[in-house]
Amino acid sequence: MRAEYPKIERASADRSASAGAEASDVNYPQLDPGDIATLFDRARLRMARELRGLTQVQLAKEAGSVTAASVSQFENGHSKPAASTLQRLALALRVPPSFFAAPARPPAQDEVNGFFRSLRSTAPRDRQQALAYVHLARELTLEFEKHVALPELNLPRVRIEEGQPLQAADIEQAAARVREHWNVPPGPVQNVVRLLERNGIVVVRFRVSIEKVDAFCVDFPDRPVVALGADKGLRDRSRFDAAHELGHLVLHGSGERAGTRIIESQAHEFAAAFLMPVGDIKDELPDHLDWPAFLRLKAKWHVSLAALLVRAKTLGVMSEHTYAQGWKALSVRGWRRVEPGPLGNPEAPVLLQRALDLMEKTGTSFAEFIGHSGLPEADIRTLLSRDVSERPRVEF
Rank of each mutant, 00 (worst) to 15 (best):
V158A: 11
A101F: 04
K232S: 11
A3M: 07
F40W: 07
D387P: 03
L251S: 01
L330F: 05
I262H: 01
D219F: 05
Q87C: 12
D287L: 11
R157V: 15
L59W: 05
L309R: 05
R239Q: 07
K61P: 01
A272C: 03
R177Y: 11
I160C: 06
R138L: 13
F116H: 03
L246M: 13
L275W: 05
E368K: 05
A104N: 14
R257A: 14
E360N: 14
K146V: 04
Q173W: 07
V250T: 12
S79P: 02
F40K: 02
R120P: 00
D219Y: 11
V148A: 05
L343I: 07
R127N: 09
T382W: 07
S79Y: 04
V184Q: 15
A63F: 04
V218K: 00
E320Y: 10
H248M: 07
V202W: 02
Q325R: 14
E360L: 08
R157M: 09
L315Q: 08
A3H: 07
P107I: 05
R205N: 12
A293S: 14
A21M: 05
A312N: 02
D110E: 12
L289T: 08
S84H: 15
W301V: 10
T364D: 00
Y323Q: 05
A102K: 09
A169P: 00
F294R: 06
S12F: 03
L93C: 10
L285Q: 12
E50F: 14
V203R: 09
S72I: 01
S385A: 15
E162L: 14
L289N: 03
P96T: 15
I8T: 06
M276W: 03
R207K: 15
A227E: 13
A243K: 01
W335L: 13
G371H: 02
T314C: 08
F99R: 08
V112D: 02
L351P: 00
G20Q: 11
A176N: 09
L251P: 06
V202G: 06
L351D: 06
S385E: 14
G341K: 11
E320F: 00
A258V: 02
L140D: 05
D379G: 02
P33H: 10
W327N: 13
